Amino acid sequence: MTANPILLQKKYCRIIECFAKQQGLSLDEALNFFYHSEVYQLIRDGVSDMHCMSDAYLADELEQEYSGGVRRYL
């Protein structure tokens, strides 16, 4: 299933804001990390309907990737 691109852009914004707050990063730093992350690629490509997961869940997944932890979705 694919999501509406406009709705995805809004979701990306919410995920990035949540991630930035969790990690104490600037929005620019969080944005840069997000767009180079595996989480973003999975959402963008519609893998496992990742776009249907909550913003908090996806921010937690980014946090795992950021800290080099094991990803639960692989």
Rank of each mutant, 00 (worst) to 15 (best):
M1Y: 07
M1I: 10
M1E: 05
M1N: 05
A3G: 06
N4Y: 15
P5Q: 15
P5V: 11
P5L: 07
P5T: 09
I6F: 12
I6K: 09
L7K: 10
K10N: 11
K10I: 06
K10R: 13
K10L: 07
K10W: 07
K11C: 02
Y12L: 03
C13M: 07
C13D: 15
C13E: 14
I15Q: 00
I16Q: 00
I16D: 00
I16E: 00
I16K: 01
E17T: 11
E17H: 09
C18G: 02
C18L: 05
C18K: 03
F19L: 02
A20G: 00
A20S: 02
K21D: 05
Q22A: 11
Q22V: 14
Q23D: 00
L25E: 01
L25H: 00
L25F: 03
S26G: 07
L27Y: 14
E29V: 01
E29H: 04
A30M: 03
A30K: 01
A30V: 02
A30H: 02
L31I: 07
N32F: 15
N32Y: 09
N32M: 11
N32S: 12
F33G: 01
F34E: 02
F34Y: 13
H36G: 07
H36P: 05
S37I: 03
E38Q: 12
E38I: 15
V39H: 05
V39R: 04
V39W: 06
V39F: 04
Y40I: 10
Y40C: 13
Q41V: 04
Q41R: 12
L42N: 14
I43C: 10
I43Q: 05
I43N: 05
R44K: 06
R44I: 04
R44N: 12
D45H: 10
D45L: 10
D45N: 11
G46A: 05
G46S: 04
G46Q: 03
V47H: 11
V47P: 03
V47K: 08
S48N: 13
S48F: 08
S48K: 13
D49P: 09
D49C: 07
C52M: 12
C52A: 10
M53I: 10
M53A: 14
S54L: 00
S54R: 00
D55K: 03
D55C: 07
D55V: 02
A56P: 04
A56N: 08
Y57H: 09
L58A: 04
A59R: 03
A59G: 02
A59N: 02
D60M: 01
E61K: 09
E61I: 08
E61A: 14
E61F: 10
E61R: 11
L62K: 02
E63D: 13
E63R: 15
E63K: 08
Q64M: 15
Q64K: 14
Q64G: 15
E65K: 04
E65Q: 13
Y66G: 04
Y66W: 13
S67K: 12
S67H: 09
S67L: 12
S67C: 11
G68P: 00
G69K: 05
G69D: 09
V70D: 11
V70C: 13
R71W: 07
R71G: 08
R72I: 08
Y73Q: 12
Y73R: 14
Y73G: 10
Y73I: 06
